[in-house]
Structure formats: structure tokens, C-alpha cells
Write a protein that binds this DNA or RNA. Structure first.
Lengths: 271, 271
DNA sequence: AAATTGTGTTCCAAATAGTGGAATTATTGG
DNA sequence: CCAATAATTCCACTATTTGGAACACAATTT
């Protein structure tokens, strides 16, 4: 069941991590709890991390004490509310998001469809912001959510901004998985696709992640590619044809470029 | 803008914390960075935590490595995006919020005004959820934000659910601060107010936190008070009179009770 | 251009905090 | 109620963190 959300594309080789010592171990534990859909009990966690009982118990206690985890009355552990507070600050204080926001609005006004901003982290794209006319339901439930790089418009756009070496490494880490009949599931196809995106400056999601959902995207990145993100316009297939998306491609690129220009003093000039 | 959020009531006294060892120190550093509005530079952080240069440097490096902090190109540190991912999971997986959600909707339909759900953490109330008709702007910018216990409806409602000892302790930790001319700024007045709330089951915010904003609230809590929250209906003073709020008081209490009943199997029966 | 100051980064012996096996105490369920 | 399982505590051992001081690097100033 935990598989479904894949999120992690779970550390292929358990924590290739550089040495982050005690903190790293604690965060690994946090991650284990985060990766489950339901609250986990002590032994479940114990099974998934190779640490002795005593050690794990102390780590959990510390995490609970710090508010990063919550110990429920049935002895199960869930993520703690302190994380919400940290995240709210991280989001509100994020300069990239702040700078990008007005451009998202403009793009939304121009197209009338939902605009997304996501940033690359590992093999995932993290939703940073979203503008849509009708927020039918719980929009904020999206912020912070992760989706795979290889089958989203923002993800493919982001990859197109990487240099060959970084791209190669990233693709090597991807755990491909078929979401729909259109999902790209081989490294080879993905590379071909990215070559196209580099040539045109736009990535498309042709119902690759979810049937009925399409998007056009463009990359947003810093000069040294230490920061790579994607901007997209998304819509339901019944309302948004591929032609419509193509007609917006230029607008998306322009918005992405405008964001990069605004960011220049902070991230260094584009290209 | 994000004005009102003010969050802080910044750590009144540096860490009374029980011993959480290395993790605790790392989180303290995170907290320092989180408490600043702008990204902080190394020496700024150094000034605010009593740790030697070398130690702090390693801690920061570890936090960056783990994605909990971001090191900007100008050597300033901001909160990392990994926090967003954790928080999204924490929010989505939060059983209390999930259970409460339908009741918030009901309450919103009954009153037509904004409904808030916040949970007590230390001397702050953390926004967990919100339902409003017109989400004029950036509603999710609120989720996770913290506001003071002593001058919000949800905060006072939550306090009314604490036993005398816990209440006394909490009040002792509050750093009172005047937000408006109506803000309660003494422990004595606050205690009197809470006695009223206990008697009636409802707390009111009479423009105590922000001029022009009023609310009615009721407490939501577990039997052992290990979990204490507040539910409120909030509206602008020009549209919502105190009489209107009073007429909703019963509805708010009912909704709060309904949430507690739904939670019973998980948190233990109410009272 | 050389010197100065203010930052950020690295090193390593000493001290401290984390480790992990085994014993103890709760919880669950038959 | 007792057996079985899960959670928690304990403590001698050791790996990790510590923190002072030395090293780099920029941006100023002389």
C-alpha cells in the first residue's frame, strides 16, 4: 500500500547519503513514518530501519519530544504538527515563490486554466504554488505534495534545464512506473523527449500521469542549475485540446523567463 | 499580503526543553532560522545560539544536506523545501483534521462565515484547517501558521478545556502583548475570561487580535487533555454583530461536540 | 598593491552523547 | 486469567559531537 504514493522512489541504495550523523538517522526515521499512509507502530518502524530496538526507541522519543512526531494513544506514530509550522514559514518566506507569484497570476489570466509551480528535489517535483479560478476543493492539500519527474510537465521541463551529466545521473535514479497508457517508462524514450523539449523550450504532459489531464510547461532555473523548477498550465482533456496547449506554449515560456529575470539578482543571471 | 500572520510570540525563553540531545540542538537551530523573516547569515545565527563556530557550522551543513535548510548563494540560510513535503504528509494524514473536516463544512453552511480549526501547541494555536466561501486570497498561506493563545477565540476556547494546573502553567508561559485596544494583557483578566468560557462553553474574540475581526469558538479535546484544539466561526465586524455570533454559539458547540464524538474511538471518550 | 577586517570553513584531541544487547514492564488476545 | 507479544528502560562500551584555534576568502581600507 505504501507503494502507491511512491513519493520517495525510495532511496534506491539505502541512503547513499553523505554522513549527516545523528541528525541523518533521525530524519531517516521521520521519512519512514512519512512514507506510510497510516500511523506506524514501533515494530513496523523497527522492521524498516536497521537499528536496534533501544536506539530506535530513543530516536522516536526525541522526535516526539521535539514535536516532529506524535505518539498516539494506541502507540502508533504520526508526523507532528510542528512540521506544519516550519513548513508554513518555509513557504511564506520562500523568495522564489514570492517572486513567481504575480507571474502565475498573469499566466492564469491569460489562459483561464490552472497554473502550477513546482521545484525539482531528487527525482520528484514538489508543488510550490498553484493558481486556479475555481478552487473546487482543498487546494492547499496540494502544496508540498510530490509527484514524479518523469511523467509530469513540470518535471520534464525541469529536466530539460539540467546539463547532460546531471540529467544522466537523475535518469539513473528514476524508478519508472506506468501511471497511464501514455506514461514514458524507459530512459531512452525520456531522453528523446527531453531533447525535443530542449529544442522547443516547452514540455507537454499528454495524459502521462493521469488520464484526462494535460499540460504545457516550461523550465525555470538558476544560472548554475543549483535550482531547477517548472511552470505549467494544466487543464482537463475534454476542455483543453493539444492545440490549445500549443497556443499557450509561448506564454508559458515568457512567464518562465520573466520569473528568471526577476530572480536574476538573487540566483545569478539566466544561462 | 500575508500581514496578520505574525506567528511568533517568539520563544519567550530559550528552550526549557528536556534533553533531546543532538537532535534537539539541530532543531533549535532550525527554529532560529524559522523565527526570522529574512534568510539569516552564518554570524547572525551564531549570535543567537550559544554554540561555538565549528559546531554550528557542522550543524548547518547537516541540516542543508538533509534538505531542512537551504544555503543560498549569498551564504544566507532559509528553511528547506523538504519541510514542505513532510508537512503535506502530516496534514493529509492527520486523523483529527480528516474527521473534523465535514463538521467544518456543515458549520460553514449553517453560518455562511469562515470556519477555523486550530490546535494548541505550547502557547500558540496552529491553524489546521479553514473553510470559507470566498477564498479571496491564498488561503493555504494560513495553514500551519501560529497565532497567540491569549487573544484568539480558538486559543481561549482551548485553554478553557485545560485543567487548572495545566492552565496555570500555560498562562505563566504566555508573553502577553497588546495587539488591539481590546487585547487581554494580564493573567488575571485572562483567568476571569476563561472562567466565563468554562461556564458557557463558548469563547469570543471581540476584536482582540485584529481590529474588525470577531469570532465565536468552542473547545475540542481528548479525555486526558493530551490533545486540545479550538473550533471557531469568524467574521468581519461590519457584517457580523456580537448578537449574530451569540446566535451561532450553540451551533459551534454542537459541531465541536460532534467532532469529539467522532474522535472518541481514537482519543478516548470526551470528559 | 598590501594590509585589514569581517566572514565563512576546516581540523583534531578531548569529552560527551549515542549505541545496542539484554532485562523489565506494559498490552493484547486466547 | 495467563501466555504471548509489544513497548520501554538500563547501562557498560564506543563512536560522534564538541569547540578552540588555525586556515581561507572577500570586501574594504590604507
Amino acid at each position: 500500500m505504501d507503494k502507491a504514493q511512491t513519493s520517495d522512489s525510495v532511496t534506491p541504495q539505502a541512503r547513499a547519503h553523505a554522513d549527516t550523523g545523528t541528525l541523518g538517522k533521525a530524519i531517516t526515521v521521520l521519512d519512514i513514518v512519512a512514507s506510510a499512509e497510516e500511523p506506524m507502530r514501533f515494530t513496523e518502524i523497527l522492521d524498516r530501519c536497521d537499528q536496534p530496538r533501544g536506539t530506535l526507541h530513543r530516536q522516536l522519543s526525541n522526535l516526539v519530544e521535539e514535536g516532529l512526531l506524535t505518539l498516539n494513544r494506541d502507540h502508533s506514530y504520526s508526523l507532528g504538527l510542528r512540521l506544519l509550522k516550519f513548513a508554513a514559514k518555509a513557504w511564506a518566506g520562500n523568495k522564489f515563490r514570492t517572486i513567481a507569484e504575480p507571474h502565475l497570476r498573469t499566466l492564469h489570466e491569460q489562459t483561464g486554466e490552472t497554473v502550477h509551480l513546482s521545484v525539482l528535489r531528487g527525482t520528484e517535483m514538489i508543488y510550490l504554488d498553484k493558481v486556479e479560478s475555481r478552487q473546487a476543493v482543498r487546494m492547499y492539500s496540494q502544496i508540498g505534495n510530490a509527484s514524479p519527474v518523469f511523467c509530469t510537465g513540470v518535471g520534464k521541463a525541469a529536466m530539460s534545464a539540467l546539463n547532460d551529466e546531471a540529467l544522466e545521473t537523475l535518469i539513473g535514479q528514476i524508478a519508472f512506473r506506468r501511471f497511464t497508457e501514455h506514461t514514458i517508462v524507459t530512459a531512452q524514450d525520456l531522453k528523446a523527449e527531453i531533447a525535443d523539449i530542449r529544442a522547443t523550450g516547452n514540455a507537454y504532459d499528454r495524459e502521462e500521469h493521469e488520464i484526462g489531464i494535460r499540460c504545457v510547461a516550461a523550465p525555470v532555473y538558476s544560472a548554475d542549475r543549483s535550482f531547477v523548477a517548472g511552470l505549467s498550465v494544466t487543464g482537463p482533456a475534454y476542455r483543453v485540446s493539444m492545440e490549445a496547449l500549443q497556443s499557450w506554449a509561448g506564454l508559458v515560456r515568457e512567464a518562465a523567463n520573466a520569473i528568471m529575470d526577476d530572480m536574476a539578482p538573487r540566483l545569478g543571471p539566466r544561462t
